[in-house]
């Protein structure tokens, strides 16, 4: 892990198009500003892990088409 020290108001560039700014430091809390392309999703790792798990559980549980249309397999729903 790369470890750097920055002061409030200073920035850090990640690659060509992501800039992280330390906006405020107060006790054990750090407020960060993030400038990144729209395609870059910025997530707290704990939220990402929760959502990833929720998505897997919701999507992979069972075939929802079969669940809702029961045994009428070859019949196209309206």
């Amino acid at each position: 892990m790369l470890v750097l020290t920055r002061k409030s108001g200073q920035k850090l560039a990640l690659g060509e198009d992501i800039v992280v700014t330390v906006l405020e430091v107060s006790g054990d809390r750090v407020k960060l500003g993030i400038e990144a392309p729209r395609s870059v999703r910025v997530l707290r790792p704990e939220a990402a892990a929760q959502l990833s798990e929720a998505n897997r559980a919701a999507a992979g549980a069972k075939s929802h088409l079969r669940l809702l249309w029961g045994g009428r397999v070859a019949e196209a729903p309206p």
Binding site: S39, R41, L43, A48, L51, S52, E53, N55, R56, A59, S63, L65, R66, W69, V73, A74, A76, P77, P78
Partner: peptide
């Protein structure tokens, strides 16, 4: 629509098709 072991013909309109350019969180290929 293929359900494991089965294939269902499902009639849907073009308006019902959606693309998620970044996929879902944790599943960018969806």
């Amino acid at each position: 629509v293929k359900v494991p072991g089965e294939v269902w013909p499902v009639a849907i309109s073009e308006e019902a098709l959606f693309t998620f350019p970044s996929g879902f969180v944790g599943y960018p290929d969806w």
